[in-house]
Design a binder for these strands. Structure first.
Lengths: 125, 125
DNA sequence: TAGTGTCAACGAAAAGTTTCGTAGGTGTGT
DNA sequence: ACACACCTACGAAACTTTTCGTTGACACTA
């Protein structure tokens, strides 16, 4: 139903979430330097994303305007949940531990996670 | 340097981590029912994984014995770190929040994360 | 010895991803 | 009007992933 964006598609989605609805040119300029690929590559990717239903295209202007179909939080959440299920047996604690072992976190970051958990609990209640 | 395993390759790695060094037949039997693909598919995947350096192959017996090159924790950590960087701007708290929003956690699971964080801090000191 | 079962190797098909070149249309400025 | 810049569309190449059929080797057994 909901196709999972590839790595390249995700880069484009992140830009669209940041900028809001954008043309290929705008996305491409925000992408440049980062990956160095050409304009038509970005164009083609965004066309494919429209085919897949990852983005919607407004063709009223000559330079078509693209916008993401799914919310940033929802998409990112699905990606995190997918990894959690596939790799960490569905355990959030295992996912966190894995992430921390890959990139050690400072005490401040640990506290930040704690605050986030508290906030999460409060909103859940 | 270190190739990232695909989803299918990861399934095989998980089995190898569980069973220890195994033949294609053993892996395939553990995989069956889950994905329903044939024996030669599993074989080919494992051969490719050997080419990529994801597994090592002991060819002394007729039924070759495969074992993972990287430790389970290290590989899973790299996958979590990769998602954290690519999707959550390197923030562990954002990753956790994303995972929780995808699959709400019970109070017990939240406590489990808290205990894990405490343990992590202790080992870091 | 002839048949049966298991194994690795190989090739190849089908689908998906990433990349870019080229063609054709539209608008702007000189 | 002509040249130039910019836009989409299209096709195709190169690569990866996933799948499976076929082949040939080896071993066991009736």
């Amino acid at each position: 139903m909901k196709p999972k964006p590839t790595a390249s598609e995700l880069e484009i989605l992140q830009i669209l979430w940041n900028l809001g609805p954008s043309t290929v040119r705008q996305v491409h300029e925000n992408l440049e330097g980062k990956n160095g690929s050409g304009y038509t590559t970005t164009l083609k990717l965004m066309q494919i994303m429209a085919e897949k239903g990852l983005v919607l295209r407004d063709e009223r202007e000559r330079a078509h305007v693209y916008r993401p179909v799914s919310e940033e939080q929802e998409t990112k959440g699905r990606l995190a949940g997918d990894l959690m299920d596939r790799v960490f047996g569905g355990s959030a604690a295992a996912l966190v531990l894995g992430a921390l072992s890959a990139k050690p976190a400072s005490p401040e970051e640990i506290d930040q996670i704690r605050r986030m958990l508290k906030e999460y609990e409060r909103s859940r209640r």
